[in-house]
Design a binder for these strands. Structure first.
Lengths: 110, 110
DNA sequence: ACAAAGCGTAAGTGGTAGCTTACGCGTATG
DNA sequence: CATACGCGTAAGCTACCACTTACGCTTTGT
């Protein structure tokens, strides 16, 4: 039983990213998701639990199936968070790059 | 010796994110970075190795110090990748949301 | 040439994430 | 009411990640 993770860490795992991609493409039941992946159904259930705790997916009962779907808000929240991180670092980087390159290079880097 | 990781997974670790944030704010030597963190210097070295393999940081020798600095390109590449992922999922989500809500809800989300 | 600073790496350890098999509960179907 | 489907969870195992200590190499200073 995994700990509480932020969306970033939650989506870091490849399998979990696949699971999320699946439900983002189309709401699916657990068995459907598992059928398209090289892991067992309980494994998918656990991944969905993590995604659920991270507020990245949503659940709706339909008959005896449990339909999972992605939550746009969760994604957007994470994106905003990332953007802030980006901005901070990139600003610093830009300043430093200018200070560094203006003297001897010009920035032809790769 | 860690495996090869993509930028996403590399930045998933909190400590490693701190290391990256540090070098993004200002190019620093290994000891400097380690001095500001609750881990040993070798640990920082290993984290820097991972960031190096992920093309997220850069190294320059200066005297006997090894100065690490963040690579804007690496970040930007990851950001692009994320953006693509975003777009794909969000598009699907929007379509599905419309199809779903138009019949019985109205979109009182959250 | 010798001592010290600054790193990188090897070896070893603890913790935990991800997976599987086994089981039990709720729900539809005859 | 009995059977089968769909799912969540517990228990256990394996592998890997992050961290530490110990060692060796390169570079600077006296």
């Amino acid at each position: 039983m995994p700990q509480v993770m932020d969306a970033w860490q939650a989506l870091a795992d490849p399998t979990r990213r696949s699971v999320y991609a699946r439900v983002a493409t189309a709401p699916s039941s657990v068995s459907e998701i598992a059928h398209g992946l090289p892991v067992s159904r309980p494994a998918v259930s656990q991944h969905l639990r993590v995604l659920l705790d991270s507020r990245l997916v949503d659940v709706t009962r339909r008959g005896r199936e449990q339909v999972y779907r992605a939550r746009p808000e969760g994604l957007d929240a994470m994106r905003t968070e990332l953007e802030a991180f980006w901005r901070g670092t990139l600003t610093s980087l830009k300043v430093l790059a200018e200070l560094t390159y203006e003297a001897h290079d010009g920035g032809g880097g790769r």
